[in-house]
Nucleic acid binder design. Structure first.
Length: 563
RNA sequence: UGUCUUAUGGUGUAAUGGUAGCACUGCAGUUUCUGGAUCUGCCUGUCUAAGUUCGAAUCUUAGUAAGACAACCA
């Protein structure tokens, strides 16, 4: 799990980096660069968070700044320590280390004191109206709000009531603290936003029942940034309208030239994917997936289990960039990024996922030869290994056709193919079962065509992967496809469960892999020749090898066969 | 009948007043002890209209379209 040696590529300049460089040039904040990644510990991280993480930590790294992890834990109703731990593991797995770890709850006292200060200045008041009434008085986007009857209550009364709010004697919803700004503002967030509400029914995961009044996001987030010395507070586009309020709160309290700056970027939208926490939770709870780390889930845990490397995720984030345009990113680009990254490192192994037996009739019975084969043609340092070859082997059913069309360069009656790393063989016959399916293929081999021998250079059109029948390990292979069958499930008006792709998981139990895979470690990734990238599932055991398909190779023929 | 933001090939993203480039997809080809990978080529784009300028994707105005905002969520 711990993986701190991941290489994180330097991104090309984006508009946020341009802002950062301008701020540096202008000498702002004494040339200091500080960011933060501020998750609320109320769920698991997904690939959308990975985008934010790459930006927050990446900016700090590229500009000799620091990036802190801060849990935005101001709402105990939704938060849990379970998520705090999982979030940290996922960030580390992505290859990042935070300088400090903070919690918004660390600032509860400071925030409280500043709120008192604001009340004393007459800029905040206690409202005792119901949530419904307050909402009604906010007006609408086109109609100005009306002022609360409590808006002008005396400072002393406000102070006394604010203290009351934190005693536990005040019922939830009975009173709130509001900033006194402008009920007629064209920005809804300026219409006397709530700063504090009472929550006494849930313990906070860190402070227990110490506090009964909790700060709201708009107040707590900006001030937390300010307390920590954040210079660039990066968040997603939907917080754009919050920025004036963010700045307003900063203005109330700042006492030097330093000020944090909020910059918004586009969140990640992936085709064929839902990333809403609510929907992901539903998928898990209703058993539509096996859990938060189901290989089909867009969670960091799911991607990890599926065989995505941290490097491949960085590669993807690097490709999609950061802009202010609400984009729909093609899942195909993610898959491309994964292939590109895994291609450099994945060990090539022989595996046959839809086997048919092939007997080499002129090969001595009982003879076994160890054939040398390269681990990775892209990387010489990966070395070679030996695989056993014998009279009876398995090949892919798709690699043999009785009536082969002209462009079919694999095996067919009277045709020759190269067995990868071994001999050239010629098909001399086959047998079919009662359904007409081929049950066994007969070949003869040419002993002088063994790989590496002088006579081996004879050209044949096709090369097939294979495993020795008596040496192969039986394995279970799980093929994954996109979870949803529509391009933009989030925008589809139908219930998202109706949009699930019924073929998103296909389990193959009659698969054979070469014996070297017995020593594979959990999550190790491999390229199965001409099939795709796979990794060993954590639930595997020596008795039952389970491989997850990370992504298929971009071979239209193979793709068709795998469906 | 509001405020804020955005608009570049099918998709994503560069070009910060000076030749519209890159990647993905698609198509065609090359090559290989697998048709993958590699390599090569091709296709397709500045939302509309006015203005400023020697020159506009870029600046201005208007229009059009899209997104965000009216949680005691973050």
């Amino acid at each position: 799990m711990e993986n701190t040696n991941v290489e994180v590529p330097k991104k090309s300049l984006n508009f946020i980096e341009a802002f950062v460089e301008q701020d540096l040039k202008d000498g702002k904040n004494d040339g200091r660069i500080q960011t933060r990644f501020p998750p609320e510990p109320n769920g698991y991280l997904h690939i959308g968070h990975a985008k934010a993480i790459c930006l927050d930590f990446g900016i700090a790294r590229n500009y000799n700044g620091i990036c802190n992890l801060r849990f935005d834990d101001t709402n105990p109703v939704k938060e849990d320590v379970e998520y705090v731990d999982a979030i940290q593991e996922d960030i580390k797995w992505l290859g990042y280390n935070w300088s400090n770890i903070y919690y918004a709850s660390d600032y509860f006292q400071q925030l409280w004191d500043l709120a008192v200060e604001l009340i004393k200045q007459g800029k905040a008041y206690i409202d005792e109206q119901s949530a419904e009434t307050i909402a009604k008085q906010k007006g609408t986007t086109t109609v100005a709000g009306t002022e609360s009857p409590y808006r002008n209550r005396p400072v002393e009364e406000n102070l006394a009531l604010f203290l009351q709010m934190n005693t536990g004697k005040i019922a939830e919803g009975a009173m709130v603290l509001r900033a006194k700004i402008d009920m007629a503002s064209s920005n809804m967030h300026f219409r006397d936003p709530l700063m504090y509400r009472v929550i006494n029914s849930h313990p906070h995961h860190r402070t227990g029942y110490t506090w009964k009044a909790y700060p709201m996001y708009d107040y707590a987030h900006g001030q937390s940034d300010y307390f920590e010395g954040v210079t660039h507070s990066l968040c997603t586009l939907e917080f754009e309208v919050h920025r004036p309020l963010y700045d307003w709160f900063i203005d109330q309290f700042k006492d030097s030239d330093y000020r944090p700056r909020q910059i918004e970027f586009n969140r990640l939208n992936l085709t064929y994917t839902v990333m809403s926490k609510r929907k992901m939770l539903q998928l898990v709870q209703e058993g539509l997936v096996s859990g938060w780390d189901d290989p089909r889930m867009p969670t960091i845990g799911g991607l990890r289990r599926r065989g995505y490397s941290p490097d491949s995720i960085h590669n993807f984030i690097d490709k999609i960039g950061f802009t202010k345009f609400e984009a729909q990113n093609d899942i195909g680009l993610l898959e491309h990024a994964v292939r590109e990254s895994l291609n450099k490192t994945a060990k090539r192994v022989n595996a046959v996922i839809n086997p048919v037996k092939l007997i080499i009739t002129n090969y001595p019975e009982g003879q076994v030869e160890m054939m040398e084969t390269v681990n990775n043609p892209e990387d010489e340092s990966a070395g070679t290994r030996e695989i056993p070859f014998s009279r009876e082997i398995f090949i892919e059913r798709e690699d043999f056709m009785i009536d082969a069309p002209k462009k079919f360069f694999r095996l067919a009656p009277d045709k020759e193919v190269r067995l990868k790393s071994a001999y050239i063989v010629k098909c001399t016959g086959y047998e079919s079962d009662e359904n007409g399916d081929v049950s066994v293929i007969y070949c003869e081999y040419y002993p002088e065509t063994k790989s590496g021998m002088p006579e081996a250079n004879r050209k044949v059109k096709g090369t097939l992967h294979w495993v020795s029948a008596s040496h192969a390990l039986k394995a279970e292979v799980r093929l994954y496809d996109r979870l949803f069958s529509v391009e933009n499930p989030s925008a589809d008006p139908r219930d998202f469960r109706e949009l699930l792709n019924p073929d998103s998981l296909k389990v193959l139990t009659e698969c054979y892999v070469e014996p070297s895979l017995l020593t594979a470690q959990s999550l190790d990734h491999f390229q199965f020749q001409r099939i795709g990238y796979f990794n060993l599932d954590p639930d595997s055991s020596p008795d039952k090898l389970i491989f997850n398909r990370t992504v298929s190779l971009k071979d239209s023929w193979a793709k068709e066969q795998l469906r």
